[in-house]
Amino acid sequence: MAVSSVPFASPAPQLAARERRLALAGAAFAAPAALLLVAILLAPLIVLVLLSVTDYRLGAVAVRFVGLANYAEMFSDPVFRRAIRNTFLYVAFVLPAGVFGGLALAALVHARKRTRSLYEVIYFLPVTSTLVAMATVWQFLLHPSLGPVTPLLAALGFGRLDLLNDPDLALATLALIGLWQLLGFNMVLFLAGLSAVPRDLYEAAALDGAAGAVDRFLRVTWPMLGPTTMFVTITTTISAFKVFDTVVVLTRGGPLGATDTLLYVLYLEGFHYFRTGYAAAMTVVLLAFLCLLSLLQARLIERRVHYA
């Protein structure tokens, strides 16, 4: 590109040309990703919003505009309402247990010297495993008459529990399995965070009079882990929100709808009942929830964290 093509005089035409060249390169580099972003994210979102105000059913010939009827139906739909309640209960358990459990594990493992890598591997194992395959194992383990868990719990004085088929317990069981799979991931993230805390900070804190391990943790480790905590919190929220595999394989939303979750109901409506318009409306609401939660968390955590 010739320098003379710069439209207006600049004190350093070469510099301006370079700027333009860099801008062009930047646009070119970003273009493929931007195109994908439009094709895979933005365009579908627009279509989704449009679908959500129709009564479209997959394969149907005629489509009718129904305004906000789908949204209205959703909030009086008992299945959707319990799916929301179940999903929030699930998140309310998995989120704190996942974040603080991961942090506690990381702190314990971090302090180990010789056995550290062993524990790292063991706790990370469930993360890499295929949840569908492992859910089949869990179904086995939790079989009320054939699996080892029920007799074990009975021996511990819990009585004869059927963890998957009792409507009062099924959701908690799925949450525990979710936690089982998630803990190692969060632990590894926190371990990475811990190893980045400079040693001398602890010495400085010791000089300041921080005595015990707890004091050290509260005054140095925890604040330094801010960005990690934020990341872990957001990823844990989203993956807890997305609970699906275990529902499909283990309970299919039952018993008595005790494990109906948002994504499972969404899947049923969209790809099993083929109520496309209604499912689209549900998806829009799901997205609103996710955005709201992320914003909220980002706000809450950012107040205490200065992102590096």
Partner: peptide, 20 residues
């Protein structure tokens, strides 16, 4: 948009993508 996209799981655009 990237930051926004971080909160959007595949299940959100799944329906239109499937139709397409």
């Amino acid at each position: 948009l990237v930051l926004f996209g971080l909160t959007v799981p595949i299940q959100v655009p799944a329906l239109p993508l499937y139709l397409a």
